[in-house]
Nucleic acid binder design. Structure first.
Lengths: 177, 177
DNA sequence: GGACAATACATCGGTTTCGAGGTATAAGCG
DNA sequence: CGCTTATACCTCGAAACCGATGTATTGTCC
C-alpha cells in the first residue's frame, strides 16, 4: 500500500523523500500515519528493484536532497498493481482508497471499470460483522449500542459507495463506447 | 488490534483457538483476513504474559483442543486497552471497529463516553485527503472521479458516524446521571 | 544570541504479520 | 475405499512496520 502510494505520487512528478512523506501523510496520514522509518526503507526497496532512480541534488535547503524519479519499469509496475490489485486492496478501505487515489493512471477506462467492479462485487455480497449462526444480524437486532454503531456506520458507508460506484461505472461505460 | 479481539472474545466465554479464529474472521475477516500464522503466535504472546490460560481438552472432534480462558490480569488488561486505546485505534476505522465491538466490557458509562469523545474529536477536526496548499479540497473541486469518490464516501461515513456518536453520547450521559 | 521548529536523510532493534507448508483426526460422499 | 472438507494445531523464514535515536543545516521567534 505504501509502495503503491510512492509509485503513484512519483508518476505525477519527481519528488524527494521528505516531500513524498508530506504527500502520503496528507493522503492517508490522518487515519494511518506513516513513520519515516517505514518510508525510507520502502524507497530503498523500490530503488533496488529499479522501479525508481535517485539523483542527489546538493546546494539545497538543508541536507542534500535525493530526488526520486520513476523509471519506465516503475511506471509499468504501477499500472500492473493498479490493474490487478490483490483482494486485500479491494476489501480494506485504507488500501482501497490508495488504489482509488491513483486509478486515473490506468490508461484504459475499461481497465478502470474492471477494478471498480471488483469493489462493487465485494460490497454487494451480504456480509455483517455479527452473526446468529450463519445469518447476518441487522443493527436493530443488537442490544449493544456500540456494535449497533458499527453496523450503522458500515451500512451508511456501503450505501454511499454503492451509489457512487454505479454512477461512475455508468459514465465509464459511456466513455468506453 | 488482534490481541484486543482475542481478549474481548475470551471475556465473553472461554474458547479454543480455532473457534476464536472463526469469530475474528466473522468480525473483521471480510475486510482484513487474519492468518492462522498470526493468530497462534498472538495467543502464545498473551499466554506468556499470563493474560490467558490454556487447558488441553482431549477426546474432542479432531486434534486436542486448547481451551483458552482469560485470567483476572487478562480482564484488567482488556479494560485498560479499551479505556486508553492508542491514537491509532481511534483514527483507523479497522481498529476503531474492534474497540467498539468490545467497548461494552468497560464497566463505567463515563469511561465509555470518554472513548467515544476521542473519536468525536477526531472526526470533527477538518481533514481531507487532498489539499491545495493547506486548504482541504472538497469533492466538487476535483476533476478526478476516483478521488472525488474517496471524498464522497469518506464524507458519508463521517456524517453517519457523527450522528450516531452524538445520539449515543446523549444516552450515555443520561444514563450516567 | 540562543532556543526551537522545519528541512532532509538515515540506522537499529524489536515486534508483528504474512505466506507457505506441515501434522493429525473425523465425517461425508460416491 | 479413496477423496474432499472440516476440525485443530503448529513452525519457519521473510517481509513489513514501528519507535527511538542520530546527524546536519537553515530559518524564525523572542
Amino acid at each position: 500500500m505504501l509502495e503503491l502510494a510512492i509509485l503513484g505520487f512519483l508518476h505525477d512528478a519527481p519528488l524527494h523523500g521528505y516531500e513524498l512523506r508530506k504527500r502520503i501523510t496528507a493522503l492517508t496520514g490522518h487515519v494511518k500515519p506513516v513513520a519515516e522509518s517505514t518510508l525510507y526503507p520502502a524507497i530503498k526497496r523500490l530503488e533496488n528493484a529499479r522501479l525508481l532512480e535517485r539523483a542527489t541534488q546538493p546546494g539545497s535547503v538543508a541536507a542534500p536532497r535525493h530526488v526520486l524519479t520513476l523509471t519506465e519499469e516503475g511506471g509499468r509496475e504501477l499500472r500492473r498493481r493498479l490493474a490487478q490489485p490483490p483482494q486485500r486492496d479491494i476489501t480494506d478501505e485504507n488500501r482501497w482508497f490508495t488504489v482509488l487515489a491513483f486509478l486515473r493512471h490506468l490508461p484504459d477506462p475499461g481497465a478502470q471499470a474492471a477494478v471498480l467492479r471488483r469493489r462493487l462485487a465485494f460490497l454487494e455480497e451480504p456480509a455483517s460483522f455479527f452473526y446468529d449462526g450463519d445469518r447476518p444480524l441487522r443493527a436493530e437486532e443488537l442490544d449493544d449500542p456500540f456494535r449497533r454503531g458499527i453496523l450503522t456506520v458500515a451500512r451508511a458507508t456501503s450505501q454511499a459507495e454503492l451509489t457512487w460506484l454505479r454512477t461512475t461505472l455508468d459514465s465509464l461505460d459511456a466513455a468506453g463506447r
